[in-house]
Amino acid sequence: MDLQVIINGILLGGLYGLAAVGFSLIWGVMNIVDLAQGAYLTLGAYITFWLFKLWGIDPFLTLPVSALILFGLGFLIESQIIKRVLRYGFVMLLVVTYGLNLLLQNAMLVAWSADYRSVTPAYSGAGLNIGGVNIPYIRLALFIAALLLVGLLTIFLNKTRVGNAIRATALNRLAANLVGIRTEFIYALTYSLAAAVVGMAGSLISMVYTVSPNLGGAFMTKIFVVTVLGGFGSLPGAVLGGLILGITEAFTASYIAPGLMNAVSFILLVVILIFRPQGLMGKQFYGA
């Protein structure tokens, strides 16, 4: 097997993992399949693009801006729209988040056109060569940034008071309410946090993909596969799922046919679902 292919897959997989974390969190905590995540990702990518294009701000430094703007947007959308639809159940939420996605995507199309844009900082060409394997610095940096962000989020969820409240709410909303957790606020917070994280994923992705209003749509299927592979609600699971998808894709593209990438990913998904329906790292009782 070609080491280069595996390295490419792993580096890309880290980004997939980060992109899926928000989706996974919203699914695990709120039991919502949030189809608007794609639009949030695209928005994050555009924020980085414009800050880079207009003011020459280094794309990595735009991460906090993406996070902040998307956190705010997420909070607004949860408290004004999602919250009101929650009691109508799963299917209605699918419809609403699908609609939100369309709305945001079209707004971006109107505002910024369908042109393909790219973010190309000065260092984007440089790379490392170890024994014939080529590792572009930027891909390595993106990979490390993605893992760092997932790591921070994991620590937040497991070690802080608010993080505990989010986990408890995920497991049993009524009981969480009865021990004094303001679960309405936890829902808003979870949704905003997830939007901020996928926005940052978009910012990172803009450095290696061309940016257009469709960017998030292309990632949505990957996010879905990664989440189900890893086990929804599990952050380490999202990273593992991301890595597996990245490697599978790189492998399919090099050895089978690039056009079959999605088909092979879905076959993998089905196989995992048959043998381990809770996903690779889905925990007992979570998402039950």
Partner: peptide, 19 residues
């Protein structure tokens, strides 16, 4: 209505969340 995915002790600790 326990938090099934948490340990006994984590469940008990959650009971003191408000305090």
């Amino acid at each position: 209505q326990l938090f099934f995915g948490l340990s006994v002790e984590e469940n008990l600790r959650m009971g003191a969340f408000a305090l």
